[in-house]
Design a protein around this nucleic acid. Structure first.
Length: 276
DNA sequence: CCCCTCACCTGATCGC
DNA sequence: TGCGATCAGGTGAGGG
């Protein structure tokens, strides 16, 4: 589910909701959500901690705690946070973890739901966090992400461009929606070997990745089915999708027909008319 | 080392 | 209506 724009929206929402608050109690309803930690150890690590801030790295959400550790969440496909959800949601199925927080502005309840149960949480000390950070590739909205650095990342690979864009150790935060949309925007066939791009191709791709991600952050993500922000709101980027999930539709650029194929077990959407 | 396949889960949808 | 097949935004283990 969540790619960079969704994770960014959630991290910002969490920051607003819980930064400065202290975790008083938590319940772990599904123990696999915190594995390999035991529920008891996980509760011990979080109880009494103050959340200093919440940030995003790639698709990971990291709450920085007052003892220097980080409470880190990977949402995977269907993980979702809610802050003080309306009562109708409170007893919804698939509740994984719930936390009671308080602060000078009063308390609140944060819940983590996860239909498919792929989501995971960890408590990382600074060393473990650095190791994770080092493993992840460049942030595509940062200054370090340049045409030159992108060229270097693509150069080493003969794999299809779309697959390489999904590799979190190269560019961190793209998922299947935005990888496909970026290829479309750059007029590049997602099946092309990554190392076949020339300078002009790389330049267009670099710009396309940034444009599509910035725009999707601005729209608060793409809500196709499960994704919601921490207050239950939907994203709006689904209205801007040009190819993802639209096989058979008319290409808005050339009037061709959007095609779907499968690479590395995952759908690829593109317009054969104008992506080369 | 590179790259693909598969497993991990539940639920929605589609064709018969 | 029911039933099986297929698909879904991610990731990492394993193997060719």
């Amino acid at each position: 589910m969540p790619e960079l724009p969704e994770a960014e929206t959630i991290a910002r929402g969490l920051h607003t909701a819980i930064a400065g608050r202290r975790i008083r109690r938590l319940r772990i309803h599904r123990q696999e959500a915190v594995e390999p930690m035991s529920p008891a150890a996980f509760r011990r690590a979080l109880t009494g901690r103050r959340v200093e801030s919440v940030a995003r790295r790639a698709k990971w959400i990291a709450a920085n705690l007052d003892d220097g550790t980080r409470w880190v969440t990977q949402l995977r496909m269907t993980g979702r946070f809610t802050w003080n959800p309306p009562s109708a949601l409170r007893d919804a199925p698939h509740l994984s973890v719930s936390l009671l927080l308080d602060g000078s502005q009063g308390g609140g309840v944060l819940r983590f739901y996860d239909v498919r149960r792929f989501g995971r949480m960890w408590i990382l000390d600074p060393v473990a966090w650095s190791a994770l950070d080092a493993r992840l590739g460049v942030e595509p909205l940062s200054e370090e992400f340049t045409r030159r650095s992108l060229a270097g990342l693509l150069d080493g690979s003969r794999a299809p461009l779309r697959n390489v864009l999904l590799d979190q150790e190269r560019v961190a935060g793209l998922g299947n929606i935005y990888a496909n949309e970026a290829c479309y925007l750059a007029r590049l066939d997602p099946r092309r070997p990554a190392n076949s791009l020339d300078e002009s191709d790389v330049s267009r791709l670099h710009r396309a990745i940034r444009t599509v991600l910035r725009s999707a952050v601005e729209r608060r993500g793409t809500s196709l089915s499960d994704y919601r922000d921490v207050l239950g709101g939907e994203g709006r980027f689904q209205a801007d999708l040009k190819v993802y999930g639209r096989s058979g539709a008319v290409c808005p650029r050339c009037g061709g027909q959007v095609a779907r194929t499968v690479l590395a077990g995952r759908s690829v959407f593109f317009c054969p008319g104008c992506q080369r």
